[in-house]
Design a protein around this nucleic acid. Sequence first.
DNA 1: GCCAACGTTGGC
DNA 2: GCCAACGTTGGC
Length: 136
Amino acid sequence: MFWLFKSEPHAFSWDDQVAQGAGPWTGVRNYAARNNMRAMGVGDRGFFYHSSTKVPAVVGIVEVVAAARPDPSTEDPRWDCVEVRALRPLGAPVTLAVIRADPRLAAMALVTNSRLSVQPVTEAEWGVICALGGVG
DNA sequence: GCCAACGTTGGC
DNA sequence: GCCAACGTTGGC
């Protein structure tokens, strides 16, 4: 399955993810986003998206390397994290503006529910964004 | 920095 | 269980 992970680059950027290698995706405090993480399997792919920045955009591809487990960043047992590692950057970032302008991507949660920080992506949407981003 | 959208909390 | 208040996200 395919997913999209949002991160504010001034807090944790794609470059940080690359430098870190595999690491837990912590800090999710939203049930829908948590449930999406619980649905992930090892080997699933996800887009790494830069939010709250000058040019919000999908910038890279990550792979899920560990299934959901309790988030070590909180004592609260409600919240989980998965573990991801950077796979490859996009050849060119795919900006939110481009995503919004493409009718094939009109149903993406990024467009319809901008506040969901971990979202499912359909196989068709995955293919469109990979093509726009120059990933073969 | 502003503000709209939306999720969560908590009183009732 | 409803709903108002509040806090946060995130685009612009």
